[in-house]
Amino acid sequence: MTTTTHVEAAITVHKYEPAVYEEPAEGPVLSRIHLEESFSGGIEGDGIVEFLQAADADGSASFVGIERVTGAVDGKSGSFLLQDNGTVADNIVSGEWFVVPGSGTGELTGLRGSGGFRADLGAGAQVWLDYWFD
Rank of each mutant, 00 (worst) to 15 (best):
S94R: 15
L111Y: 01
V7T: 11
F63L: 11
G113A: 01
T5W: 01
F80C: 12
T109P: 10
E96S: 15
A57S: 11
P101E: 08
G86P: 08
E8T: 15
G102N: 12
F80P: 07
T3R: 14
A61T: 08
G110N: 13
D130F: 12
G106V: 01
L82W: 04
S40R: 14
G41D: 00
N85C: 00
I66G: 04
A61I: 07
F39L: 06
A9G: 10
A55H: 02
A10L: 15
G110A: 10
I66A: 13
S114Q: 10
E8Q: 15
I48A: 09
V127Q: 02
V7H: 02
A119N: 07
I92T: 15
G106S: 05
G59Y: 01
E36T: 02
S38C: 02
G78E: 14
E44Y: 03
T105G: 02
S94T: 15
V88K: 04
S60G: 05
D46G: 08
D58R: 01
E37T: 08
G75P: 08
S77V: 08
L52F: 13
H6V: 13
V99Y: 03
G59K: 05
K15G: 04
V93E: 07
D134F: 12
A57E: 15
R112H: 13
V49I: 14
A54Y: 08
G59P: 02
F98R: 14
F51E: 04
S103P: 07
G42M: 11
T109I: 10
G86M: 07
G41S: 06
V88R: 06
V64L: 00
R32G: 08
A89I: 01
L108I: 07
E17Y: 13
P24S: 00
V13L: 11
G65H: 09
I11T: 11
G95V: 00
T4F: 14
V49L: 11
Y16Q: 01
T109D: 12
E36C: 01
G102Q: 05
T4E: 08
G106Q: 05
V99A: 10
L35G: 00
G113E: 02
S77M: 12
E17H: 05
R32T: 03
E22R: 09
K76P: 01
T4R: 04
A54S: 14
L81D: 05
G42D: 07
G75K: 07
D56C: 07
G102E: 10
D134K: 00
A89S: 15
G65T: 01
A125N: 06
S77Q: 13
A10V: 13
V69Y: 05
S114L: 01
A57I: 01
S38D: 07
E67P: 11
V29M: 12
A10Y: 02
E36P: 08
G47V: 05
G95D: 09
R118A: 09
D46P: 08
Y131L: 09
K15Q: 14
D58C: 09
A89C: 10
P18Y: 09
E107H: 09
G86H: 12
L81K: 06
T109Q: 14
T105P: 10
A54P: 09
T87G: 02
